[in-house]
Design a binder for these strands. Structure first.
Length: 708
RNA sequence: GGGCGCUUAGCUCAGUUGGUAGAGCACCCCGUUUACACCGGGAUGGUCGCAGGUUCGAGUCCUGCAGCGCCCACCA
């Protein structure tokens, strides 16, 4: 007797009708939390979700990342691991504040100074809260099996404690210092920004060749004439025969009303081929020049202020830089000191956020010293003994070089080392209001590190920390550090980290820095960098191009399973994914195929023996897929399953079985195990089908993986 | 300037340790025989960027070249 097929299978599979209910079932089961998982589970498998910024809504790049990690975590859960995937969101200080400031400007015509610090922080916090819930509901729609009971936000109480503790310990180790250094100053945003937040634009510029005075022996070329009032030296290459005789001489001049004292020095940083081969050294307004001035112990007067206006006596006083440049050119002309003016193309660095031209300025900032030796109390990093002397840079290198952090993609490993080798101190202070405030308090000349005010006369440092400071603690701050929690004991180091290559330096390397310093243990065992999801024409998705794809719309049209498969199949980890709606549509059809296979199989009796040759064939495929998953060839595992199920199981085996009841047991075997293998990739449709399988005991998400 | 990567069918891309080129989509033809028309069957389509080399054998390894892309630096 053929059993009755449940009625739902008589219609095509409808993801929108089932996905919500399935997710609810998963959540209510408690299995997202590894503490509730059935059976003995010795080994932990931990993944932390790269926390999305609370600036907006989920985009297709997040969807891709969610799909990838969910596949990995579901696979490991089914393999019997204590699988934990921690959700969270990032306050992302600068972009979030900038976003809210923009809204306030637009709607109320007010700047942050009109509103004031407390009110602005309040509004940004509110915005973040709203944005947070939007994003989280979207992550759920993807089917992400995240343990919501361990949800973390970079600015919640536990994470604030972690940030404070990390700061304090690094400060006490002498690795955090305050120093005057050249920073990227954004005159429009009135803040320092990191190198990563600047963009270079090619612009037309004039290259002026001039002398400081009639008796000055060497002509100098520059595009920034107005800064020359801040010059303290002229540098030439040590091997440059033309100028060797002048090295060591000093000259006084009055340059456009400003007295200057210029020393001629030799420094290898100078490019003899460029311009006249002599560099006017303006220590306060150029990084290169600052470094040269440091090497030669030169004075470093500041001549441009925070508003990009001249801060000198005489005719340039108070002028904007561009205007001052003209005035200097006129003055040089009238004095007969201007030798040449050429049109050139110049790369100008601008602020990614405000578009303003960056003004390099010396500022008092907080820094993390990556080269300073310190004694590491405890270390599990191979090659770094507990109690030995090391540096942060050395730790970052050792972590990957030793294989403690496995970075299997050779190209990215090379990029990482290249970056480490060129690493400079990390500027961690930002002149904005939203974020973790620097926990340093001042009273006159005194200063102290404290989480709360040490007393009435103390005032706190006005700056906040670079958002990456808190993000860098994420692999252990989410597990309760600095408390010695059971979670930290069980789930650290995390197992698998898969960020986009864009943030290899920004985030991955800094997590390694913080993890190795604070715990003496690397933050993750393996890093698999993934690519970007791009538009079909290969361009990045961006607001300005208006070429964005809303993942929710895709889910509504094709279902989350189809979206997951469409994003995963076809591109190995690390290479970019071209977004193709047709492909997603194809996997919706696949979900329906699976649905109809079930309809047929459920109409058969599960009688007879499982055919050994078909079982063997399946098991070989299953082993293959398992190996692919273990080695993170996720796209390939998905594709193999797709082909097996459609072209082999449905097209051949199932056709062959028609009218032959002895196939029954085989069909059930193949379907049940196909569902298990497909579950990490297409969790919704497989769980929904599983619910109707006669052998079902518990949710498919906690079934045993068919391959040991 | 330094680093990394890509170039395979009309489009998007696979090709895991070198063994006679693959998928999806699109296009064309045929088909509604009860799992599925959200389907089935079939056909067309590639000198694997170019030039050398190693090898019995190269899309796969090596060298050079060209085009494209990304990251980092920022020459005043």
């Amino acid at each position: 007797m053929a059993p009755d097929v449940p009625e739902k299978f008589l219609k095509p599979y409808d993801p929108t009708a089932t996905e919500g209910a399935i997710y609810k079932k998963w959540e209510e089961s408690g299995y997202f939390n590894p503490d509730n998982l059935p059976g003995e589970r010795a080994e932990a498998f931990t993944v932390i979700l790269p926390p999305p910024n609370v600036t907006g809504t989920l985009h297709v790049g997040h969807a891709y990342e969610d799909a990838l990690q969910d596949i990995v975590i579901r696979f490991q859960r089914m393999r019997g691991k204590k699988a934990l995937w921690i959700p969270g969101t990032d306050s992302a200080a600068l972009p979030t504040q900038a976003r809210v400031e923009k809204d306030i400007q637009k709607e109320e015509g007010k700047s942050r100074y009109d509103i004031g610090r407390d009110e602005l922080v309040k509004r940004v916090t509110e915005f973040a809260k709203n944005s947070e819930s939007t994003i989280l509901s979207q992550v759920r729609r993807m089917g992400a099996s995240l343990d919501w009971s361990r949800y973390a936000y970079t600015m919640d109480e536990a994470r604030n404690t972690a940030v404070f503790t990390a700061f304090k310990r690094m400060f006490e180790a002498g690795l955090i210092y305050r120093g005057n250094r050249i920073v990227n100053w954004d005159p429009k945003g009135q803040t320092t920004i990191s190198d990563d937040e600047t963009l270079y634009e090619e612009r037309d510029a004039k290259l002026y060749t001039f002398r400081y005075s009639k008796d000055f022996p060497i002509p100098v070329a520059t595009t920034r004439l107005e800064t020359k009032v801040g010059d303290t030296a002229v540098a030439v290459h040590p091997d440059d025969e033309r100028y060797r005789q002048y090295v060591g001489q000093e000259y006084d001049a009055v340059f456009c009303d400003v007295p200057v004292h210029i020393k001629i020095i030799a420094d290898p940083a100078v490019e003899p081929e460029f311009g006249t081969g002599a560099l006017g050294v303006t220590p306060a307004h150029s990084q290169t020049d600052w470094d040269i001035a440091e090497r030669h112990d030169l004075p470093r007067p500041q001549v441009i202020n925070e508003y990009a206006k001249m801060e000198v006596e005489g005719r340039l006083h108070g002028k904007k830089t561009a205007e001052a440049r003209e005035l200097v050119a006129e003055w040089l002309q009238s004095e007969g000191l201007l030798e040449k003016v050429e049109d050139i193309k110049q790369n100008v660095s601008t602020s990614e956020r405000t578009g303003a031209i960056i003004e390099p300025l010396p500022k008092l900032q907080w820094w993390i010293d990556v080269n300073k030796p310190f004694t590491i109390p405890y270390s599990e990093i191979p090659g770094v003994a507990s109690g030995s002397e090391t540096t942060l840079k050395a730790l970052m290198r050792a972590a990957v070089e030793s294989g403690a952090v496995d970075m299997p993609q050779e190209g990215f490993r090379k990029t990482y080392f290249h970056w480490i080798d060129n690493l400079r101190d990390w500027c961690i202070s930002r002149q904005i209001w939203f974020g973790h405030r620097i926990p340093v308090w001042y009273r006159g000349e005194e200063s102290t590190v404290s989480e709360t005010s040490p007393g009435e006369e103390w005032s706190q440092d006005p700056d906040v920390l670079d958002t990456w400071f808190s993000s860098a603690l994420w692999p252990f701050s989410t597990l309760g550090w600095p408390e010695k929690t059971a979670d930290l004991e069980t789930f650290y180091p995390t197992s698998f980290m898969s960020p986009a290559y864009e943030i290899l330096q920004l985030w991955v390397s800094r997590m390694i820095l913080m993890g190795t310093f604070h715990l003496g243990v690397v933050p993750f065992n393996i890093v698999f960098i993934h690519g970007l999801v791009r538009a079909k024409d290969g361009r990045k998705f961006s607001k300005s191009l208006n070429n964005g794809v809303d993942p929710l719309l895709m889910i509504e049209k094709y279902g989350a399973d189809a979206l997951r498969m469409g994003l995963i199949v076809g591109a190995p980890l690390g290479s970019d994914v071209k977004f193709d709606e047709q492909k997603i549509k194809g996997y919706k059809l696949f979900a329906n195929k699976l649905w109809n296979i079930t309809r047929f199989v459920l109409s058969q009796d599960s009688t007879g023996e499982i055919k050994p040759e078909l079982k063997a064939e399946f098991d070989t495929m299953a082993q293959d897929v398992t190996k692919d998953l273990e080695e993170y060839r996720i796209y390939m595992a998905a594709e193999k399953l797709y082909h097996y199920v459609w072209d082999r199981f449905a097209a051949e085996i199932l056709e062959e079985s028609k009218g032959k009841p002895e196939y029954g047991a085989t069909l059930y075997y193949l379907l049940e195990n196909s569902l298990k293998l497909l579950h990490p990739f297409m969790p919704f449709v497989t769980e929904e089908i599983w619910d109707s399988m006669p052998s079902k005991k518990d949710l498919l998400m906690v079934e045993h993986w068919p391959v040991a």
